Amino acid sequence: MTFEQHISGNIEYLERPGSIGGPVLVMLHGIGSNAASFTPLLDHLPRDWRVIAWNAPGYGGSIPLDAEWPLALDYAAALKDFLDRLELKRVLLAGHSLGCLIGAAYAAAHRERVVRLLLSSPALGHGVPCGGALSAAAQARIDDLQTLGPDGFAALRAPRLVFEPESNPEIVRYVRDGMARVSLPGYPKAARMLASGRLIDDAERLQVPTDVIVGAHDVVTPPDSARRAHAALRHPWRGAFTLVPGAGHALYQQAPVAFAAALAALAETVG
């Protein structure tokens, strides 16, 4: 099962059509990824679901944001415009890593449009003031891409996203191939957004049922960080916390069945 490729305004996205009246799931990829990375999930999701994965601004065929240092709210505004064009009023929303910063910012601002939110392998952000000195981690991302080029950048970073990479070469290759598609200026803009991100602040403001899932062996966004995000959610919006054994940061590639189960739980919320 595969996605169909589309463009709506300034956003390129992938879609698997569902049934009329069925749930609509929108998925937001991480900083070193893209919409196509969600393909392994399709065979594990109900066939009546309409599944949409966007390429964030500056990724794939999506036009970068104008700001040199965009904030999570800027990406959330782009997401709102995108969903408006598709005439989607209420969706199930799932973010992975950097996509959690976008998803939480969107859900905090537009709670009436999100049925339920999944934060997977959540990036908390570095809390750097916009326009200030970049965090070391964000600067290293930009420097590595500019110095090594996309292929070298991906070869350096991809194995770290997979638990026991030496035993999972196909998953590493899949992650590496997706990461090698990042480009300028989209990736540096996303890295700056990561630097200024403050997921905990948005988590505290959320008034949308929200679940958190993380790989037990994630060294990029460790389980302790995911627990912090989950603990910041307020009652009654705090949903399930799921720790997936045998998985690293590339959670939905390494454990698609467990990830799909977390997505399926989103549709249990009615309203």
Rank of each mutant, 00 (worst) to 15 (best):
residue 221 T to P: 13
residue 134 L to K: 04
residue 236 P to A: 04
residue 184 L to C: 04
residue 206 L to N: 15
residue 222 P to I: 02
residue 182 V to F: 05
residue 244 V to H: 13
residue 217 H to C: 13
residue 126 H to L: 02
residue 195 A to F: 04
residue 167 S to W: 02
residue 206 L to F: 14
residue 194 L to K: 03
residue 188 P to H: 06
residue 126 H to N: 06
residue 219 V to A: 14
residue 158 A to V: 10
residue 200 I to T: 02
residue 198 R to N: 13
residue 236 P to D: 02
residue 224 D to A: 11
residue 218 D to G: 01
residue 173 R to K: 14
residue 203 A to G: 15
residue 140 A to S: 12
residue 137 A to G: 07
residue 178 G to D: 09
residue 222 P to N: 10
residue 211 D to N: 09
residue 221 T to D: 11
residue 146 Q to K: 08
residue 122 P to L: 00
residue 224 D to F: 03
residue 190 A to I: 06
residue 211 D to M: 03
residue 177 D to R: 08
residue 193 M to I: 03
residue 208 V to Q: 09
residue 185 P to C: 03
residue 139 Q to Y: 10
residue 222 P to D: 09
residue 243 L to Q: 08
residue 145 L to N: 12
residue 246 G to M: 14
residue 160 R to V: 09
residue 212 V to D: 08
residue 125 G to V: 01
residue 160 R to P: 02
residue 168 N to P: 12
residue 215 G to D: 00
residue 177 D to M: 12
residue 158 A to Q: 00
residue 181 R to Y: 01
residue 166 E to P: 06
residue 186 G to P: 11
residue 169 P to M: 03
residue 138 A to L: 06
residue 130 C to I: 10
residue 185 P to F: 06
residue 123 A to E: 15
residue 237 W to L: 00
residue 148 L to S: 00
residue 124 L to Q: 11
residue 140 A to E: 13
residue 122 P to T: 07
residue 186 G to A: 05
residue 174 Y to N: 05
residue 217 H to M: 11
residue 163 F to V: 14
residue 208 V to G: 05
residue 162 V to A: 06
residue 150 P to S: 07
residue 132 G to S: 11
residue 172 V to I: 07
residue 136 A to H: 12
residue 246 G to V: 12
residue 147 T to F: 00
residue 157 R to I: 08
residue 183 S to H: 09
residue 198 R to A: 11
residue 225 S to P: 01
residue 199 L to K: 05
residue 141 R to M: 14
residue 169 P to W: 02
residue 160 R to I: 08
residue 173 R to W: 09
residue 240 A to T: 12
residue 166 E to V: 11
residue 194 L to V: 10
residue 234 R to E: 14
residue 214 V to N: 07
residue 212 V to I: 15
residue 220 V to R: 05
residue 229 A to Q: 09
residue 174 Y to T: 08
residue 132 G to E: 11
residue 190 A to G: 13
residue 125 G to M: 01
residue 167 S to E: 11
residue 157 R to H: 07
residue 147 T to L: 10
residue 126 H to S: 03
residue 216 A to F: 01
residue 185 P to L: 06
residue 129 P to R: 01
residue 156 L to A: 14
residue 171 I to F: 01
residue 201 D to C: 05
residue 176 R to N: 06
residue 190 A to C: 10
residue 243 L to R: 05
residue 158 A to D: 00
residue 190 A to D: 08
residue 206 L to D: 13
residue 248 G to L: 08
residue 212 V to R: 14
residue 235 H to I: 04
residue 243 L to I: 10
residue 158 A to H: 00
residue 163 F to Y: 15
